[in-house]
Design a protein around this nucleic acid. Structure first.
Length: 804
RNA sequence: GCGGGCGUGGCGGAAUGGCAGACGCGCCAGAUUUAGGAUCUGGUGCCACAGGCGUAUGAGUUCGAGUCUCUUCGCCCGCACCA
């Protein structure tokens, strides 16, 4: 072909992006005739820093799948939106005295422009933002439904308080005793908080994992987070006459319990103040424990502390033995019953504690040396010193003792979960207002649904207050209202919702984003749900993923959505590190700006490098040199136009390579093996160069295969050469099985397992015919040097191994 | 400590139990060019180089192991006193 223009990514990309935008090329079709496909990426938080090179990794990966599915004839919904409530925007607003809504709008505009420059095939007609009152109307609506069903409640409880953000945090937001966002110190503080009863859904969230295709490590993390454990609750009688209930997973070791431990916050301590001889000492210990942050409490776990409660003892229900009761902060009030029986012989923590305080260690499972270490094995051990359990294996003993306890009314089978209820309040401005009012007569009263959305008022200052109240609390005009129930005076809730709220259901809104009557129409949801493929970061596995599964399951239970699980498949991408192999951060100065890469190399090369740089699920250091290599490859693809020949067919000598590439690329995209798919296309292009020619038919196939990765250049080449209709709605190429069968193949010849030569043999040689074939082959006989063949292993298409 | 994952050239990484290092980066040489850049061609695991050695370590299974089993070492991620 003559007169090939120079490749200018900037011009080519602008041209196609405008064309796609003008024609709404990637809008999901209204009709439900075609099979649907709903791929999803985690919608970004529009930070002031703009897009990060990490975003395009997930986006491009799902864009490739979305584009391939359209070419395969699916109706594809590939949406985009913004998770725009949140602390950084609010902090920026405070610092610069700008309304967070204005900051948000600006940031979204920038993100949108950056995303469009990279050419993602999002359906921008369905764009949403969690900060839009038309959106958060439904976030509030869901909250009211949760409230209506008893799943939202307000409770005085110790919360994690970030001393720097001055805000309560969920357990999940505390990392190593510090605030996940700002790194500030986190202490305990008692405050009245809205809570969501996610614990009611622990078992459903666990069971639901069996019916979805999440990658295994995501399932494992969710299971660990929910933390189900089976055991029993057992009542010990105290010498005061009342009962102390404990939870244990090892009721078989009941005969080995030599003391008990209560959490410092256990209510029985206060109730028995009078009987406790050393109450002062206990109270002092409790105060010291409360002052410690969670972090310190766990940091010091090697050195256990505790105080014996003098004046109260407990009676072991299985043998009537009287044992001491201790207080220690290694027992947590928030799990089980806040008290344990201690079996030092068979629990490492109890063993350590017993050693430190000189408490007796009684062996009840034989198999170890319990004086030198706790014996915790449950496979081989046999019960000893255990009355009715003697001689039983651990598992049988557990069953036997629980039955016995239940019969005597001393205890019962019990399942516990590590999962805690979700602290849902934030003392912040830039979040969804909680649509409830407090009335002296009626208590907490929900706003009527028709009054939603309850919008954020304009305030003077977004600063949270030192006493822990939200900035909204200062807005008396807004706060003081009337009770929807009795009409009397009432006060609005001034806490707002956490950022997790808006992101817990956004995938539903994409389905029907402009609906003012419902969060989404049932008919549309029945067509589009569940999300077919959701890709995101591992950092959201235990928070966002679990929260959104919880909300969705609740909505399913009340008949609002048609599927129990929101996401059918969940995959995860690896992080992109700085060129130095460290996590990208401003302070390290190793941050790569996507705009710069697009400026220098073009969006197509940028997208390709993001996919080519390494295995998709692994952390990979950035290399701008590597990205230039992808640009060089696209230059080579462009110059294929110089060696174009007239045929619309695939030439016979290229048939194998072309068909193999179709097969490999098709399969690798599905398995997220983007790097090897691209490598294969590079090999094919190398083959065209080696030959010095490419037919129009061959180039068209290459453009189709490469289009999902680098959509602009491929459309341009296709158009310049007039190869066919626009690629993005052309059918995905199919390979010809027959073309993949070769007449001869080269195999390796091994003698005693070592490669000694190569041989061209007929491709259809069978295992049966192999012995005769190689016996008659001169080259093979030369390698054998007259030695007798003891055994011959022939692997068709691969090798022959002759043992002699 | 528990759970999950990983360890292959100078680098990113390929490899249904079957020719280790595909593809790319970097590097070397040549061609072209006034020069540089770009492009093209060839080369590039290591060594004592007609051969031998090589996938963190040591063993095992196998005709055959990067791949399967066990051992040791190292690294990453998640959870972390959850009874």
């Amino acid at each position: 072909m003559k007169n090939i223009p120079a490749y200018s990514p900037d011009a080519v990309e602008k041209k196609w992006q405008k064309h796609w935008e003008d024609t709404h090329a990637f809008a999901a079709e209204k009709s439900h005739e075609k099979p649907k496909f709903y791929p999803l990426i985690e919608f970004p938080y529009p930070s002031g820093a703009g897009l990060h090179v990490g975003h395009p990794r997930s986006n491009t990966a799902m864009d490739i799948i979305a584009r391939k599915r359209r070419m395969e004839g699916y109706n594809v919904l590939f949406p985009i939106g913004y998770d725009a409530f949140g602390l950084p925007t609010e902090n920026y607003a405070i610092k610069n005295k700008i309304h967070p809504a204005i900051v948000t709008e600006k940031n979204i505009a920038r993100f949108r422009a950056q995303l469009k420059r990279i050419g993602f095939s999002f359906d921008y007609d369905r764009e949403i933002s969690t900060t839009d009152p038309k959106y958060y109307k439904w976030t509030q609506w869901i909250f009211l439904k949760l409230f209506e069903h008893g799943l939202a409640y307000k409770m005085e409880m110790p919360i994690n308080w970030c001393t720097s953000c001055k805000v309560g945090l969920a357990n999940e937001e505390v990392v190593g005793g510090r605030c996940e966002r700002c790194g500030g110190e986190v202490v305990r503080k008692v405050k009245s908080q809205w809570m969501l009863r996610i614990t009611d859904y622990a078992q459903k969230l666990l069971d639901g994992l069996d019916d979805v295709d999440f990658i295994e490590k995501v399932k494992v993390q969710q299971r660990n987070w929910i933390g189900r454990s089976e055991g029993a609750e057992v009542d010990f009688t105290l010498t005061t006459g009342d009962k102390l209930r404990i939870f244990t997973t090892r009721p078989d070791t009941l005969f080995g319990a030599t003391y008990m431990v209560m959490s410092p916050e256990h209510p029985l301590i206060e109730q028995h103040k009078a009987q406790i001889e050393n109450y002062e000492e206990i109270a002092a210990y409790r105060e010291a424990a409360a002052r410690k942050s969670d972090f310190e409490r766990t940091e010091l776990n090697k050195d256990k502390t505790g105080v014996e409660i003098k004046g109260i003892r407990a009676v072991n229900p299985v043998n009537g033995q009287e044992i001491p009761v201790w207080v220690s902060d290694y027992v947590l009030m928030g799990y089980g019953t806040g008290a344990i029986m201690a079996v030092p012989a068979h629990d490492e923590r109890d063993w350590e504690f017993a050693k430190k305080f000189g408490l007796p260690i009684v062996e009840v499972v034989a198999g170890g040396d319990v004086q030198s270490a706790a014996y915790t094995d449950i496979q081989d051990g046999v019960m000893v010193n255990s009355g009715i359990l003697n001689g039983l294996k651990v598992k049988d003993a557990i069953r036997t003792i629980i039955d016995w306890l239940q019969e005597k009314g001393l205890g019962e089978r019990k399942v516990n979960y590590k999962l805690r209820d979700w602290v849902f309040s934030r003392q912040r401005y830039w979040g969804e207002p909680i649509p409830l009012v407090y009335c002296e007569h009626c208590g907490w009263v929900p706003l009527p649904y028709e009054q939603l959305p309850l919008t954020l008022p304009e305030v003077e200052s977004y600063m949270p207050t030192d006493n822990g109240e939200s900035p909204l609390a200062a807005m008396t005009d807004w706060v003081n209202t009337t009770c929807p129930k009795c009409g009397g005076p009432a006060r609005r809730e001034t806490d707002t919702m956490p950022q997790w709220a808006g992101s817990s259901w956004y995938f539903l809104r994409y389905i029907d984003p402009h609906n003012d009557d419902e969060l989404a129409s049932m008919e549309e949801m029945k067509y589009w749900l569940p999300v077919d493929w959701y890709n995101g970061g591992m950092e959201h596995t235990t928070l966002h993923l679990l929260y959104s599964r919880f909300w969705h399951r609740f909505l399913y239970d009340i008949g609002v959505v048609p599927t129990p699980e929101p996401y059918q498949k969940r995959t995860s991408h690896g992080m992109i590190l700085g060129a130095d192999g460290e996590k990208m951060s401003k302070s390290r100065g190793n941050v790569v700006n996507p705009d710069q890469i697009v400026d220098e190399l073009g969006a197509d090369a940028f997208r390709m490098y993001e996919m080519f740089m390494g295995a998709f699920d692994q952390a990979i250091p950035w290399s701008t040199e590597g990205a230039r290599g992808c640009r060089r490859f696209l230059d080579r693809v462009w110059r294929l136009m110089e060696m174009l020949t007239d045929s619309d067919k695939v030439s016979s000598d290229m048939a194998y390579d072309v068909n193999f590439t179709i097969k490999k690329v098709s399969e690798d995209y599905e398995r997220m093996k983007y790097n090897t798919a691209i490598a294969q296309m590079m090999s094919l292009v190398n083959a065209f160069y080696a030959k010095g020619q490419v037919t129009r038919g061959e180039l068209r196939i290459l453009c189709l295969l490469l289009n999902p990765v680098s959509p602009h250049i491929t459309e341009e080449i296709n158009e310049l050469c007039g190869l066919g209709p626009e690629l993005f709605h052309s059918p995905w190429p199919k390979y010809d099985e027959k073309a993949l069968v070769k007449e001869t193949v080269e195999i390796a010849v091994q003698i005693n397992g070592k490669v000694r030569g190569r041989l061209e043999i007929p491709a259809d040689l069978t295992r049966e015919g192999a012995e005769a074939y190689f016996a008659a082959n001169e080259d093979v006989q030369k390698l054998l040097g007259g030695k007798a063949v003891r055994k011959l292993i022939f692997v068709p298409g691969r090798l022959v191994n002759i043992v002699c």
